[in-house]
């Protein structure tokens, strides 16, 4: 991964994958604990309902457990896991219209259930940060799915372009394009809907841009 876990941790994870492949459930449990937040970070932002997000994440882990013995060859477990999670979200979205009835509100509509850590030297700043994070979550929500997913994998899971192209099964050019468009749209949204961006200095000076 882009921000590599220290070597020891990497080795430990690889060992757990090997053991899990051989049937060691305890080793697999360690993998679940190691990756659950990362997987949920994706599914929570790609699914419509909180319950779906948890279910998609669980599906992904179960599929990983079931699938490990079938496949030969070296492949990054985490990249594979994100692909399974991404597919699981799509699967649930497909079923959405037909059998599923949710009592709970959609993640689109309600107050965001995602935790917004309060941090900042003063309560004032903490509140401002919280506000900003809410805006970012809303901004991500309103992005087209493809851009949102690419941007999340880049900024939250911190995958490289290469890894993202494998998770999404698209070529590098498409990855770059989606990230770029995601950033621009997010920036637009936050400029119109928040304090994160004040008008750029260049605008005030009537900058023409370089040729």
């Amino acid at each position: 991964m882009k921000n590599d876990a220290p070597d020891m941790q990497r080795q430990q994870l690889d060992q757990w994958v090997r053991q899990a492949r051989e049937g060691d459930q305890e080793a697999f449990r360690h993998l679940v604990e190691a990756y659950e937040k990362k997987v949920l970070a994706l599914t929570l932002r790609m699914c419509k309902h909180k319950e779906d997000a948890a279910e998609a994440a669980q599906e992904a882990f179960l599929a990983a457990w079931q699938g490990l013995p079938f496949f030969r060859g070296e492949a990054a477990f985490s990249t594979w896991l994100y692909r399974l999670a991404s597919n699981a979200c799509v699967d649930l979205l497909r079923k959405e219209g037909r059998h599923r009835a949710h009592a709970g509100p959609s993640l689109d509509d309600e107050e965001l259930p995602l935790p917004l850590p309060d941090d900042g030297p003063t309560p004032q700043e903490a509140a401002e940060r919280r506000e900003m994070r809410e805006q970012v979550e809303r901004g991500l929500r309103q992005l087209p799915e493809e851009y949102r997913q690419a941007l999340i994998l880049r900024e939250i899971q911190q995958l490289s372009y290469e890894e993202i192209s494998k998770v999404l099964e698209v070529d590098l050019g498409t990855v770059k394009s989606r990230i770029n468009r995601g950033r621009r749209r997010l920036r637009e949204f936050l400029t119109e809907n928040g304090n994160l961006f004040s008008p750029p200095a260049s605008k005030k000076h009537g900058e023409e841009g370089c040729s």
Binding site: R29, V32, L40, P113, L186
Partner: peptide, 18 residues
């Protein structure tokens, strides 16, 4: 944007998830 992006570590995990 990057500075205010949510962190994976802050993701709430349902209590009985594992």
């Amino acid at each position: 944007l990057r500075a205010v992006m949510p962190q994976a570590e802050d993701t709430p995990v349902p209590e009985d998830f594992t």
